Amino acid sequence: MSLIPEVLTSRELLVNLTLREVKGKYKRTALGQLWSLLNPLALMVVYTLVFSVIIRIDPGPGDPSGIDIFAIWLMCALLPWSFFTNVVNGGMSALVGNENLIKKVYFPRYVLIVASALASTYTWTIEMAVLAVAILLVGGNVLPYLPLVLLAMVVLLVFSLGVAMAMSVANAYFRDTQHLMSILFMVWFYLTPILYPVAEVQRQSDRVGPVLGDVTIVDIYRLNPMEGFSDVFRSLLYDNRLPAWGSVLECVAWAVAAFAVGAWVFQRHQRRLAEVL
């Protein structure tokens, strides 16, 4: 049985697990769900101070929005990145954290990964809504593009789910996976145009020239799937324009490929998870 039918037949379990994740994340904290806003705001303040005041990176005003606020430009890519890493990290810990449940009763193991991802989506939606309001307050015309932003969020969710399913299986077999991923995410973060514009990479690529035949540094750089997602979200939110079709197709292709591979890996191993854990 494929992933989608299995999840649909376990809708009630999925809803209950998602609600448990949402309610339990900030249980017994004074600020509750406000922590979901304070964490990215703290990162925004630190990165804005370092990269727009000290190092002075200037991405330029949005075209054609005219918005010229580094903090908003930063958040348009930082929030999708944070969501992606939260889904993958949550997926890796979902199986290990529910080891007793998996060993006691059979149910579609996919549900644990999907529930964790939906809980992260709930938090991300709140963060993106606050960002949209901030863009409106500074004069951005983001309202016509919100439906496309929602579609982009769904595509990123599919991509993140695919990676999370594959990594959750790897972590069940090799617990070192979660530690290796933390290092990979640190490197991946700085290889993604979150703190600096792609124009900086293009400038260095033009200076160095081809590195392998006709292949340039920027050609290799654009193989990063999160580069395409960053471009799409910044185009819609910061620039208030339609993203390039190349970036859109790239994101969809990565999402379909990641989900297909992740679902295949998970389906092959899910019946053995009780033994492995």
Score class of each variant (00 low, 15 high):
D239C: 10
Q202Y: 00
V15S: 08
Y47H: 04
V201C: 11
H269Y: 13
F233H: 03
P193Q: 10
I67R: 05
A164I: 08
V111F: 10
K103L: 06
E227N: 12
M153Q: 14
A258S: 13
V114F: 13
I113V: 15
L38C: 10
P80K: 04
Y47T: 02
T121D: 00
L101A: 11
A164M: 09
M153H: 07
V138R: 12
W254E: 03
W73A: 05
R56Q: 15
S205H: 08
W124L: 10
M44W: 07
V265A: 13
N86C: 06
A77E: 00
A263H: 03
I102C: 04
M92H: 07
P193N: 08
W254P: 01
E21F: 03
N224L: 10
L157D: 00
G66E: 03
F259T: 01
A117F: 08
E227H: 14
T121Y: 12
V142T: 09
Y196K: 04
I4L: 15
L19S: 07
M128W: 00
L49S: 12
A260G: 02
L184D: 00
N240Q: 06
L78A: 05
R175L: 10
I183Y: 12
P210R: 01
N98M: 10
V96W: 07
L17D: 00
A166R: 05
V138S: 10
Y145K: 07
G62Y: 12
E12N: 11
T192A: 05
L195R: 07
R241V: 09
L49W: 12
Q202C: 00
T192L: 02
Y110L: 02
Q178W: 01
V261K: 04
L41F: 14
G32T: 09
A129F: 14
P80Q: 01
G66S: 04
P144H: 09
L101P: 02
I69R: 10
L79S: 05
L38R: 10
L112I: 09
S2F: 13
C76F: 02
S10W: 01
A244N: 11
Y145F: 15
A77S: 15
L191W: 07
L74A: 02
G140M: 06
V133A: 14
T29Q: 04
S247M: 13
S82V: 08
S160A: 15
T192R: 06
V265Q: 06
I126W: 01
V163S: 07
L41D: 01
A257C: 07
A119W: 03
V232Y: 06
I194L: 08
K23E: 08
G262R: 03
P40F: 08
A134Q: 00
V46L: 15
E99S: 15
H269K: 13
R222E: 13
V53Q: 14
S160D: 09
L78K: 04
G213N: 09
R271M: 15
Y26M: 09
L78S: 01
S82R: 11
L112S: 10
F159E: 02
I183M: 15
P144E: 05
L95G: 02
S52E: 07
V130E: 05
L249K: 04
E227I: 08
S168I: 02
N89H: 12
K104E: 09
T192M: 09
V142Y: 09
L31P: 09
L136N: 03
N100F: 13
L249I: 11
A274H: 07
K104I: 00
F159H: 11
D176V: 11
N16K: 14
V198A: 12
V46P: 11
L223R: 08
S120E: 15
